[in-house]
Design a protein around this nucleic acid. Structure first.
Ligand SMILES: NC(=O)c1ccc[n+]([C@@H]2O[C@H](COP(=O)([O-])OP(=O)(O)OC[C@H]3O[C@@H](n4cnc5c(N)ncnc54)[C@H](O)[C@@H]3O)[C@@H](O)[C@H]2O)c1
Ligand SMILES: NC(=O)c1ccc[n+]([C@@H]2O[C@H](COP(=O)([O-])OP(=O)(O)OC[C@H]3O[C@@H](n4cnc5c(N)ncnc54)[C@H](O)[C@@H]3O)[C@@H](O)[C@H]2O)c1
Lengths: 215, 215
DNA sequence: CGGGCTTTGTGAACATGTGCACGTGTTCGG
DNA sequence: CCGAACACGTGCACATGTTCACAAAGCCCG
């Protein structure tokens, strides 16, 4: 991956944040360098995979030594676009939306919740943990004013597609969907989903098969 | 996949719940049969993939017609082990744990929250949305008494590995981890994770690359 | 009852992801 | 200065997943 063959595989992209978290731990321990072996252990993957993944970022390691923790962390942050904050908007100020707004972990990792948005006029104007609730119609304005590039969908499933459309319309190109619904977004928009019930069902599958076949 | 070649690929397992949700919608609409084409559209995937996925369950379709919605839904539920409830225990009665306990969507989908567990004695004995909080030590007892097979980790990251160990020790073979930490579990235990910050970082990657290269 | 239409089920090609094995550069002790 | 230990970077083989394309099967209708 000598120089500009900059097409990082999806599977690798999904692991970079895990490596980065491990590097952050090492930084706290004042560890200067780390081997692929050690990093692999911390990230719960295979060492060869770590080396291959990191090689997509460039040749930042030193043979016989390992990787400089700080430098690697910097390069990785840069690649992930984490050198600046990404304000997010949460759509749906219900149970989940409020819980997420309450959660400090996002700001800490560079994703401050800049605004909440809801279709329910009764909720508009409220403050949730210091974050103001706006009306859905204000999305475009909020996007421009606050520089929002990421939207989180925390509405009931039926509204999810409409919200996604509104987000895309407003020029918000990255969407994280919590609603248990399949939604489609225009070309050029990134979509990821978190579906808890789905995860439980997958667990159920393997559990059931262990229980019945496993005997 | 004629008969007993019962080794369903992981990628397929992860899609089955999505199909099932689509089938549930069709059932509500009183739709009797569905083609792979239509199901693919609803599930947001390719039709060939739907057919291949379903073929792992058996030959439940009828050429020229499609799949009987009710029958397929039944077979799929059976395969996923959703013909009975799976009581879950949530470990960590904090922000997230309480929000999850409050959420009705789990019970509705067959995953009733049977108990909350926490290490903090001050929280033990409380009721959260009708769910009692027990002490971590009671895990084995709860597991037996309530028939719990699935544990959800909603503690701070530092405690996650300890909790996973306690769950495994108690004989709980399926774990869903919300803490941003890599944890390892013994052979024969299923582990899935939900990491919101990680998802946002992945979105950040693609957004950044669109913003910079895309121009 | 047969021909045409529809839609499944699957073999095969292709794409993506993983892991081994090893060449190569680096360090360090003697 | 040399050799041994170390650890990266990557070619290659293998595994898994996706998509195409088409024969076979069932339905409908005349
Ligand atoms: N609460 C949880 O712990 C949890 C867990 C997993 C998944 N979810 C999913 O998250 C979503 C939200 O769950 P919740 O418990 O917060 O629901 P909720 O009913 O408490 O909140 C939904 C909010 O969305 C708002 N809303 C509805 N339509 C809207 C629209 N078109 N535009 C903007 N806002 C709109 C409502 O006014 C309400 O404030 C659901 O899809 C649910 O399945 C929730
Ligand atoms: N709150 C959110 O919206 C949110 C979102 C994403 C991820 N998370 C993650 O979920 C986890 C929990 O977050 P939270 O906001 O609920 O934290 P919290 O501090 O509110 O709650 C943590 C709970 O875990 C309990 N606990 C601590 N150690 C324990 C142990 N060894 N055994 C049992 N219980 C123990 C604590 O007593 C506390 O009740 C964190 O890892 C966080 O990063 C939370």
């Amino acid at each position: 991956m000598s120089d500009r063959s900059r097409r990082i595989p999806e599977a690798t992209v999904a692991r970079l944040p895990v490596y980065l978290r491990s590097l952050a731990e090492l930084l706290e321990d004042k560890t200067a360098t780390v081997s692929s072996e050690r990093l692999a252990e911390m990230a719960g993957v295979n060492a060869a995979k770590v080396r291959k993944d990191l090689s997509y970022l460039g040749s930042y390691g030193t043979r016989g030594v390992g990787y400089d923790v700080e430098y690697l962390a910097f390069q990785m942050s840069r690649e992930l676009g984490l050198t600046h904050d990404w304000p997010v908007v949460i759509v749906g100020a219900g149970n989940l939306g409020q819980a997420l707004a309450n959660y400090g972990g996002f700001k800490e990792r560079g994703f401050p919740v800049a605004a909440l948005v809801d279709a329910d006029r009764a909720k508009v104007g409220q403050l949730v943990h210091g974050v103001p609730v706006h009306h859905l119609d204000e999305l475009p304005v909020l996007k421009e004013r606050l520089g929002i590039a990421i939207g989180i969908i925390a509405t009931p499933a039926v509204a999810a597609q409409d919200v996604a459309d509104a987000l895309a319309e407003a020029g918000i190109g990255s969407i994280l969907n919590f609603a248990p619904a399949v939604i489609s977004v225009p070309e050029g928009t990134s979509l990821r989903k978190v579906d808890l019930a789905l995860e439980l069902q997958i667990l159920s599958f393997y559990q059931e098969h262990r229980d019945t076949e496993g005997v």
